[in-house]
Amino acid sequence: MTLAPATLAQLLDADPIAPAQRAIVDTVKAYLPGIAVMLHPGKVDISELVSKALVAAPGVGIGWSRVRTLRAIDGHYSLLVDWVAYVVAEARPIANRRVEKEAVALAIGNQFLRMLADVDVCFWGMRGISAPETTPGPEFKPLFTVADQAQGTVYYTVTWSQTLTGLGVTFLPTAIGHVVEDTTTIKYPSPEELAEMDGWLAGGPEVDDA
């Protein structure tokens, strides 16, 4: 397969990561009602923590930290994406009682881990994405400093990896034939699709005219 030139507009249209990120945000919103869920670039600037600009508490910012390429033998490729969700929480009254910020963050993080463990939810309504990797598996952990605690805000992360599969174009033929039972032959819808199979189907024995 030969890589073709592409304009920036074409590259943006073909980008598989941005749609996946939006799908994750939309799904997380549905399973965390009342929690602010938003796109995040993935890399946290210290000024975001100091100014509480990461995401409004209680909230979750969805981003990614690393992308790796996996090549398939048929010409397709896959992208192994390391996703990160930033969980921001503050103490708040819930059901007429004060709930501390750590408990709020833990509740959000646990729900996120349940989403990643659910055999339906973890695909975010998408096709062409794997289940979360198990080695390493999803992880929920604190990300904060003493100064952050003094502000009454805590920061946690949920990290996991998933693979976007079947990207690019295969160099193998894609025509689909159907077996004709009476003749035990394979029929293709058009001569062009049959021609696509040339070079991939075994031919009959050569006949020597000499």
Rank of each mutant, 00 (worst) to 15 (best):
A9P: 02
C122Y: 09
A150Y: 07
D120L: 08
V180L: 14
W83M: 02
I186W: 10
G137E: 00
R71V: 13
I94S: 10
P136V: 09
M115G: 03
E90T: 13
P5I: 10
A85H: 02
V104T: 06
K187L: 11
Y77W: 09
N110K: 08
D82F: 03
I94N: 03
A18L: 13
T145R: 07
L164E: 05
A14K: 08
I46E: 13
F123H: 15
A202M: 13
A107F: 03
L39C: 02
Q149P: 03
Y77L: 06
A105K: 01
V50S: 13
L116C: 08
V50N: 12
A103F: 07
T157Y: 14
T7V: 05
T165H: 07
E102A: 13
K187Y: 04
E196F: 04
T185G: 12
I73G: 08
T135Y: 08
P205R: 11
P138Y: 01
G42I: 04
T163R: 15
L49G: 14
V104A: 03
Q151A: 10
I176Y: 09
A30S: 13
A56Y: 03
V119F: 07
G137K: 03
G59L: 04
A14P: 01
S78E: 14
V99S: 06
V207R: 13
A53Y: 00
V50L: 12
M126G: 02
F144D: 00
G137L: 05
Q151F: 05
D120A: 12
T157H: 11
Q111L: 06
I108R: 01
A56H: 06
Q111Y: 01
G125F: 04
G109F: 01
V88K: 09
G203P: 04
R97W: 02
V207A: 12
V25Q: 04
A30C: 06
D74K: 02
P5N: 11
V84H: 00
I129Y: 00
V81L: 03
V50E: 15
R114W: 03
G199R: 06
E48W: 11
W83V: 05
N96F: 09
F112V: 14
L106F: 07
G125L: 04
L54I: 05
Q10K: 08
G137W: 05
M197I: 09
T184R: 14
F144V: 00
A18I: 11
L11Q: 13
A36T: 15
I17G: 00
G42Y: 04
A23H: 03
W124M: 02
M1Q: 11
F171M: 09
G59V: 06
L11D: 05
L116W: 07
A105P: 00
L79P: 06
W83N: 02
S65M: 09
P142F: 00
K101L: 10
V158D: 01
P136N: 08
L70F: 07
T184S: 14
E181I: 15
P16R: 07
V37M: 09
D208Q: 14
T135F: 10
L116I: 04
L11A: 15
T185F: 06
I35W: 10
G199P: 01
P41T: 00
A117Q: 11
S51F: 08
P93T: 14
A202C: 05
V146R: 12
Q151T: 15
A210Q: 12
A23K: 01
T2S: 12
S78D: 15
L49F: 07
S78Q: 15
V44K: 01
C122G: 04
W64M: 11
M126I: 01
L12R: 14
P191H: 07
L49W: 05
A147Y: 06
T159G: 01
A23R: 04
S65W: 01
